[in-house]
Design a protein around this nucleic acid. Structure first.
Length: 458
RNA sequence: GCCCCCAUCGUCUAGUGGCCUAGGACACCACCCUUUCAAGGUGGCGGCACGGGUUCGAAUCCCGUUGGGGGUGCCA
């Protein structure tokens, strides 16, 4: 093993980067950074039919957004078919691969006859077929023996060779499969640590067998990460779960929060401090401490962590990030003025519009109106506050003081009194602190809205 | 079916044979603070799946059971 460990993240551009892949990328990145190693990127695009090249851009963009910078240029498998072919030739020459012309229908039919056992039955093993159209190259798996490894996360894992079928390494269209390309690339890029999802555990013996047949030296160290699962404890999937990283970005999750939360799945900081800069996690992260059991991707906790991060960044930074979630020049001006009040309230940036939708006119929210205005004190509250504010110096503390005085005079709670006022001014029963809003709107606009509210109530 | 993996509060985790009367965090509940909502503070609820071993001693080691998940593609 070299001094500088080398690991890689190897996504396939068949979908947007999702949280499960991001978790895997993060673990690789943390491992590399924690050990002075290198974090490489490889685009696994051997299947021309399924690939969507534009998705590669999304994957790279999201990794950058998360701050997971990689070393060197990404390797594209589609550029390396010559290397894979050369490896395939060596397998043929070494007698560990053979050509097969079985269609999957034929294989299935034979399996059904034999009693429903799935998998390839080795039909073409000794037929001595030459290469030709419609023929795939299969790896000849030994009939006996055991293939295993010592997984950094799971301990010893092994498979009986007899349980492994002869798998395809070159498709009948001439393209290599994942197994071949993966092994060849890891060797050529001197990968020392393969850190990937649990779904690859079953494929690892094939990886090892292939390496052996190709005459490669000591295999890399393996670490199979736990799945991220949904509430039903099933592996997160893009079909049924909310997993697109781009989606989270667009909803106002901060990259600092996202990677912070992801680092908490399958691993915990030894000192128990969960919300912290990633640099600190780098210092503490050890891949062997990752635990093997699946982790539920908990939106509630993600939101909590995000809220913590929103409060952690400085005000200018907050406003800069918040701007793209708040439409309208007037709203953005208000955001600048009232930013600190919003910053301590939201968990996700996409909540912001609701805090600023009263700028040009009160928001239309009948539920809020009904709830506030059904209070017996509503009319007196509005009359009283309009009167009290008529000649008031227009600043927060004074508005508050006169409000409290009115509450005392009307023998009602401040909590009840603010309802009708807030709804008249903003249209909503919840929102930023009332007196800051009044101060911001100014005397004329505030009084006009209060009078309009009073008129509507009557 | 076969193969493989997993198993501490609802959730994420700490725990690597005695420090465990199992710790922290999220969520939830209550109270405090309070102009709403948040934030903050205090407290509460709640767990070692089960059965056998090993050991003076087991959440920690072994075996089995049960439960869950994954793989079983000429996808990756």
């Amino acid at each position: 093993m070299t001094d500088r460990p080398r690991c890689r993240f190897a996504p396939s551009p068949t979908g947007y980067l999702h949280v499960g892949s991001a978790h895997s990328a993060l673990c690789n990145w943390l491992f590399a950074r924690a050990n002075g190693g290198e974090f490489l990127l490889r685009i696994e695009d051997t299947d021309a039919e399924r690939n969507r090249p534009e998705l590669t851009d999304n994957i790279l963009d999201m990794l950058r957004w998360l701050g997971l910078e990689w070393d060197g240029e990404p390797l594209h498998q589609s550029n390396r078919f010559d290397e894979y072919r050369a490896a395939a030739e060596r397998l043929i020459a070494g007698g560990t691969a053979y050509w097969c012309d079985c269609t999957s229908e034929q294989v299935q039919a034979r399996n059904k006859e034999r009693g429903g056992k799935p998998g390839y039955d080795g039909y073409c093993r000794d037929r001595g077929l030459e290469r030709g159209p419609g023929r795939a190259l299969r790896f000849r798996v030994p009939d006996e023996g055991v293939t295993g490894w010592d997984d950094v996360i799971r301990g010893k894992v092994s498979f009986e060779n007899a349980d492994i079928e002869d798998f395809v390494v070159v498709r009948s269209n001439g393209n290599p499969t994942f197994f071949l390309a993966n092994v060849v690339d890891d060797e050529d890029t001197a990968i020392s640590h393969v850190i990937r999802g649990e779904d690859h555990v079953n494929g690892t013996p094939k990886y090892l067998l292939l390496r052996g047949a190709l005459g490669f030296g000591d295999p890399p160290v393996f670490a199979h990460l736990p799945f991220l699962v949904n509430a039903q404890r099933k592996k997160l999937s893009k079909r049924r779960d909310d997993v697109s990283m781009l989606n989270y970005k667009e909803r106002g999750f901060l990259p600092e929060a996202m990677r912070n939360y992801l680092a908490l799945l399958g691993w915990g900081p030894p000192d128990g401090v969960e919300v912290r800069p990633i640099e600190e996690t780098v210092e503490m992260f050890r891949i062997e401490d990752v635990n093997p059991s699946p982790a539920f991707f908990d939106h509630k906790k993600l939101e909590f962590v995000n809220g913590e991060w929103i409060r952690r960044i400085d005000l200018d930074d907050f406003i800069a990030r918040a701007r793209e979630f708040v439409d309208g020049v007037d709203e953005q001006t208000a955001l600048r003025a009232l930013g600190p009040l919003a910053q301590e309230r939201v968990k996700v940036l996409s909540e912001l519009p609701d805090y600023f939708d009263w700028i040009t006119e009160p928001a239309d929210d009948t539920r809020s109106w009904d709830k506030a205005m059904k209070l017996p004190v509503a009319a007196a509250a509005l009359d009283g506050i309009i009167d009290a504010y008529g000649d008031a110096p227009w600043e927060r503390d004074e508005l508050h003081a006169r409000f409290m005085a009115l509450a005392e005079r009307l023998e009602t709670s401040a909590s009840k009194l603010q309802g009708p006022i807030r709804v008249s001014v903003t249209g909503r029963l919840v929102g930023l602190p009332l007196f800051e809003i009044l101060e911001y709107l100014g005397r004329d606009e505030s009084l006009a809205r209060l009078r309009a509210g009073r008129a509507r109530l009557a």
